[in-house]
C-alpha cells in the first residue's frame, strides 16, 4: 500500500542518516583515529602503511644474490615501459647456456606505482619499497639499475 511504503521510506531514510551521523560522531570524539602524519616534523618516527608503494626494488641476500631469472614478465606487464630487462647468457659449469639478467633498468620517472610488475613476477624477485623521497636535481639519477653489480641468481630459483 502507498502509505505504508511512504512511512517505510521515511523511516529507512532517518535510520540510515542516523547510522552515518553515528559514524562521524565516533570519529569526532575519538581523536586517536586521526590518520594525518605531520610529515616533515615526524620524519624520524614516520610509520607508513604496510601497502604503501614507494619504488620498485630488488632485494639481495648477504651473498649478493637475487631471485630474478630474467623472464621479462615484469617488462611485459608494465603499462608504460618503465622496466627494461637486459639479458645475457651465463655458461654453467656443465657447459650449458643459461639465460640470466645483465641489467634490470628501472625508470622511476615513468613509474606510476601500479604494482603490476610485482604481481607479474613469478619468482618474487622485485617488491615495492617504502622510500618516497625521490627528488633529485639530475633526472638521470632516476634511471636505476635494480640488480647490484656482480650479483647473480640465487640457487634453486628457476
Amino acid at each position: 500500500m502507498f502509505i505504508t511504503k511512504y512511512i517505510k521510506d521515511v523511516w529507512g531514510a532517518v535510520r540510515s542518516l542516523a547510522t552515518g551521523m553515528r559514524r562521524t560522531m565516533y570519529y569526532f570524539t575519538h581523536h586517536k583515529e586521526i590518520i594525518t602524519q605531520q610529515y616533515p616534523d615526524n620524519r624520524d618516527t614516520l610509520v607508513l602503511p604496510e601497502r604503501f608503494k614507494g619504488e620498485v626494488v630488488m632485494p639481495h641476500d648477504e651473498n649478493n644474490e637475487h631471485r630474478c631469472t630474467g623472464c621479462t614478465a615484469c617488462e611485459l606487464a608494465c603499462p608504460n615501459g618503465t622496466i627494461k630487462v637486459i639479458t645475457k647468457f651465463d655458461i654453467s659449469p656443465e657447459g650449458k647456456k643459461k639465460k640470466a639478467i645483465d641489467k634490470l633498468v628501472y625508470h622511476l620517472e615513468l613509474c606510476t606505482m601500479c604494482n603490476l610488475c610485482i604481481e607479474a613476477c613469478p619468482s618474487d624477485a622485485i617488491k615495492m619499497a617504502q622510500t618516497f623521497e625521490h627528488s633529485v636535481f639530475d633526472r638521470n639519477e632516476l634511471t636505476k639499475i635494480l640488480n647490484n653489480p656482480g650479483s647473480k641468481i640465487m640457487e634453486g630459483v628457476e
Partner: peptide, 10 residues
C-alpha cells in the same frame, strides 16, 4: 576543526 575531526584529520 569539526570537519577535520569528523574526517579523521587534524
Amino acid at each position: 576543526k569539526v570537519s577535520a575531526w569528523m574526517q579523521i584529520r587534524l
